[in-house]
Each structure stands twice: as structure tokens, then as C-alpha cells.
């Protein structure tokens, strides 16, 4: 069911959600997406090349969850017109992320809403950076 522009106001919040990303989730995502960079599953490689010195989640896995949140709110994948994510803080394997979003603008002419979206670690660090990450969805 698609969301109507008449029901949406600037400042509206999307339902928040928490997800945890364990090693199994990263392996599953690697297989589903074809991204087998060992940074996401091999601790020895990660010790040499990871920004944290350890295994970190794929940025696209966090964005996949944010995209799911936006899709559910907007009323289906065909409603999502644009995703624009800046990956900032790495998410170490085992992290819990808080996902969220809020409406920044609604264009009554086009029916397009611009959302700020994010995925943050418990200390507030932006895995999907809240300052610079956006989604554009078509309302009905």
C-alpha cells in the first residue's frame, strides 16, 4: 500500500529499528551480493587492511537494511526513486545499528518526498552518515 503525499509532513519520523550484524549475516550477504572481499570474513586479512583492524560489515549490507526501512515506509520498491548514502564509521562484526529516517521535504507538485536516512552505532557514529545520506520516494 503506497503512502499518500497528503498524509506526510516535513519532520515526520520513520519507524526506528535495531539490527545486529554477526559474522553469519556478513557471510550470507557476501553470497547474496557476490561481494567476497575478505575484509568482511577473514580476520587475518582484516587485521592488515581494515580501518578498525578487524572484520567489518559491508557498507551495502547496512544500506540494504536502510533501503528496506524506506521501502516499507513508502509502500513498495517501485516507490524508491533515489538512494544516496555516505559510509562513514565502519561497523565491526557483531555491531548493533539503529536505523532511522525523517522527512526533509515534500514536493506537492511531483509527489516526491526527500528523506534523511541513517544507520548509527550505539555511540552515535554514522555507519550510514545521517548528515549526508538521503532517499527520494514517490508518494501517491
Amino acid at each position: 500500500m503506497s503512502r499518500a503525499a497528503s498524509e506526510v509532513r516535513v519532520g515526520d519520523a520513520l519507524p526506528t529499528e535495531h539490527i545486529s550484524l554477526d559474522q553469519g549475516d556478513l557471510v550470507r550477504y557476501a553470497g547474496a551480493s557476490g561481494d567476497f572481499n575478505p575484509l568482511h570474513w577473514d580476520a587475518e586479512v582484516a587485521a592488515r587492511v581494515s580501518p578498525t583492524g578487524g572484520v567489518i560489515a559491508h557498507g551495502m549490507l547496512s544500506l540494504g537494511h536502510v533501503s528496506r526501512m524506506v521501502t516499507d515506509w513508502a509502500g513498495g520498491p517501485e516507490r524508491v526513486r533515489e538512494l544516496d548514502a555516505v559510509f562513514r564509521a565502519p561497523a565491526p562484526v557483531g555491531s548493533t545499528l539503529a536505523l532511522g529516517g525523517e522527512v526533509l521535504a515534500v514536493d506537492a507538485e511531483t509527489g516526491l518526498a526527500t528523506l534523511r536516512v541513517w544507520a548509527v552505532l550505539p555511540d552515535g557514529a554514522g555507519v550510514i552518515d545521517p548528515r549526508r545520506s538521503r532517499a527520494v520516494v514517490a508518494l501517491s
Binding site: P51, H58, G59, M60, L63, V80, R81, E82, L83, D84, A85, V86, F87, P90
Partner: peptide
């Protein structure tokens, strides 16, 4: 390398 940003326009 690291993935720094990603955009999709549908």
C-alpha cells in the same frame, strides 16, 4: 580500499 559512498537513481 573502502566503499565511501553509494548512489542509485531509479
Amino acid at each position: 580500499l573502502v566503499h565511501s559512498s553509494q548512489r542509485f537513481r531509479f
